[in-house]
Design a protein around this nucleic acid. Sequence first.
DNA 1: GAGTGGTCTAGACCACAAC
DNA 2: TTGTGGTCTAGACCACTCC
Lengths: 234, 234
Amino acid sequence: MLKYRDVAKKIQQAIYQQNLPKDTQLPNIEGLINQYQVSRTTIIKALNCLERHGVIYQVQGSGIFVRQLQKRGYLNFLESHGFSVDLNNSPNSSQVFNVDIVQPSSQVKQNLQCEDGEEIYFIKRLRKFEDKIYALERSYYRRKMVGYLNKEIAEHSIFSYIKDILKINIGFSDKYFKAIKLDEQTANYLGLSAGDPALCVEEIFYTSAGEPFDFSTIIYHYDNAKFYVQSNSK
Amino acid sequence: MLKYRDVAKKIQQAIYQQNLPKDTQLPNIEGLINQYQVSRTTIIKALNCLERHGVIYQVQGSGIFVRQLQKRGYLNFLESHGFSVDLNNSPNSSQVFNVDIVQPSSQVKQNLQCEDGEEIYFIKRLRKFEDKIYALERSYYRRKMVGYLNKEIAEHSIFSYIKDILKINIGFSDKYFKAIKLDEQTANYLGLSAGDPALCVEEIFYTSAGEPFDFSTIIYHYDNAKFYVQSNSK
DNA sequence: GAGTGGTCTAGACCACAAC
DNA sequence: TTGTGGTCTAGACCACTCC
């Protein structure tokens, strides 16, 4: 375990366990150095990490404060597919329609940067959260990278399979999104009507080596899926 | 100018000026140290900065590569309101309806963490980009923080006024979003029909000292506004 | 094994905030 | 002025990739 991650985790846990409210001031850096017995730089790295994840904010000349402000019922848009810890793990399941091997369309080829003959897993599934349908997902995975997929894996989490079993490190992602009018077919899956609104997200995930392995189009139910993003200027 | 920002800027400029394609390998860290004459740590800080902004990706044991992949016509969701440089600056204007001082509603009070009697600027404006209407924005600014606002400022950029004239440092933001069905009134502003889809974003902006100064609700035209977000697991 | 990025350290010094 | 976070340095060592 890397020291700075360890320290970050411990600080975060301390905040959550003590249920510290927003704007509570934490010990200063000197204090944290003594508390965790690591160098100044390591503390700072841990703090920057927590700051980027929206847990704290730092004010030069003043102090370190708790940020923490997640509206209930909103999903973390950046971490909705794998990154980092999700603290309020809830019943999350999928109804899987297809797990097929297909040839890539030109759109898929472009997004996954793959060859003409390359085999691609195509998976269509309905995603549920606390018994509510919140999205219809159409995913493409490169077979040469994920090896083997089946319905059972897709019913749970493809991403944990890729991370924990295949030991592939997820590096970064691009997401494109907009509001759309639902077509009849998709509306039926979501239990809505044609013409109803939806959030349409296209995502591409890359390994830490920079190779794309997953391209997905996700249509979110406009009433059951709400998101938040925290960012900072640093 | 901070060294690491300076280095980051120069590396980014080098990439754009030479128009380096995706996955081009950059010089290694040793090379960059020699090129920019700063310490290893400073180079690394600059690189991490660029990585977070989606300009490059780094692969341990392998190298540093160009990332750069912005689909044309998509707005950077995280930087759509102020942060960082926007490279493709385009004609961007606003039609301003109101610049009023009002008492905060309970929703505004909660989001801006303000007192009952506090004076709040309420601004409603239609945002245009290359002559297309792309959003209706309703914003609330705390008067005690922004001092003075008028129609002319709102027609241009309130954020550059706050940053460049008032010298307030923007620290971080929370954004909440979902797809919605347009009501008749908002639809009229956007040139759409009631029931059409839209992307609804609520944002709260904080100074670098952690004080909220702006709460806005923005309704984006579903055909004219598309967004991207780049993120990474580091 | 050679090359490359990532972590960690101790310590000097800078910049901003609050009193 | 004092306290606080932020930057920067030189250098040791670790972890991963690729040949």
